[in-house]
């Protein structure tokens, strides 16, 4: 049985460092009894730093092929060198794993079958418990590819686990950008929250992210973090959202205390940052209404 849980919120940003993880952690706290948390920023996972998870299981993640050469069978004919377009075969006809795209051309052309394509370990997937409930997270090895597949793995595992534990909601912390891992993090999402700050670069990236989310017919909503650092840019965001009928769930004032909360490994609510309490609890009420949550 891998039925999906009814609700999934995916938190995205476009640009890195806008406060995506901060928001995901707060959501986990506010929805604690009914939710499971999934960290899909597998290239640079940070949520575990805040959540301090206790690992309950781990699994090696296999993905992507690499050409492996059997030196005994090699006749040094050089066909592989000729056929490789990625410079992954050197002049001694050895394979440079860092450059190998895994296309298999060398293996196909090799007259002595000295090259085979082998699937590689490229990361880890963890299941864990935190003070706010269960969590699924992962780590991609340095230089490994295929983070989209690892993200799908995390999402699938999250729904499976959430279902077993009778949770209503999966909260996904996505990765920056608009590429494959982000698209994978949108799978099953009912609501996508885009965390933006009032800076020209973050706004630019927010617009691209909204475009992507709407392409998949998922409803976006926006949270403005560090809302007080630039009034003019803040107004730009508000106007943009008004025009596109995109709900603005919260405006959070800039407060240096958030860095203190981070270093203490607490959510901004646990750390008791007064300025943020009201907007965040309002935000949660609005999300509950959007998702029509029964519990929580």
């Amino acid at each position: 049985m891998t039925e999906n849980v009814k609700n999934q919120i995916t938190v995205l940003s476009g640009k890195g460092g806008t406060g995506k993880t901060t928001i995901a952690a707060v959501l986990a706290q506010l929805s604690a009894p009914i939710s499971l948390l999934a960290d899909c920023d597998v290239d640079a996972p940070n949520l575990h730093l805040l959540m301090n998870p206790t690992k309950t299981s781990e699994e090696r993640f296999m993905s992507g092929k690499l050409a492996i050469k059997d030196h005994e069978k090699c006749s040094n004919c050089g066909e592989c060198f000729e056929v490789c377009r990625f410079g992954a075969i050197n002049v001694d006809f050895d394979i440079k794993p860092m450059s190998c795209e895994g296309c298999g051309a060398c293996a196909w052309i090799c007259p002595t079958n000295a090259i085979s394509m082998e699937i590689q370990p490229s990361g880890m997937v963890y299941e864990a418990n935190t003070r706010f409930g269960p969590m699924v997270h992962a780590r991609l090895d340095i230089g490994a590819e295929n983070s989209g597949k690892l993200v799908s793995e995390v999402i699938q595992k999250s729904h499976l686990r959430a279902n077993q534990l009778n949770k209503d909601l999966v909260i996904v912390d996505g990765s920056p950008g608009i590429g494959c891992p982000v698209i994978a993090a949108l799978t099953n999402a009912k609501l996508v929250i885009i965390v933006v700050e009032p800076t020209s670069t973050a706004i630019h990236d927010m617009k691209r992210t909204i475009e992507l989310v709407q392409f998949f017919k998922i409803s976006p909503a926006v949270i403005i973090n560090k809302a007080t650092i630039n009034e003019e840019q803040r107004a730009n965001i508000i106007n943009f959202c008004k025009k596109g009928e995109i709900p603005v769930l919260a405006e959070l004032p800039y407060n240096l205390e958030i860095y203190r909360a981070m270093t203490n490994r607490k959510t901004v609510l646990e750390y008791g940052i007064k300025d943020l309490e009201n907007p965040l609890s309002k935000m949660w009420l609005e999300i509950k209404e959007l998702l029509q949550l029964e519990r929580g």
């Binding site: 890195g16 730093l49 991609l140």
Partner: peptide, 30 residues
């Protein structure tokens, strides 16, 4: 950002790397 293929491609053959961080657990971790 990150540590995937494009970053390795970009970093190789450089003489010196400047790593920018911030004094938070996430900054230190990355």
């Amino acid at each position: 950002p990150g540590s995937a293929c494009p970053v390795i491609e970009a970093l190789s053959d450089t003489n010196f790397a400047i790593l920018v961080t911030e004094p938070t657990p996430a900054g230190e971790h990355d």
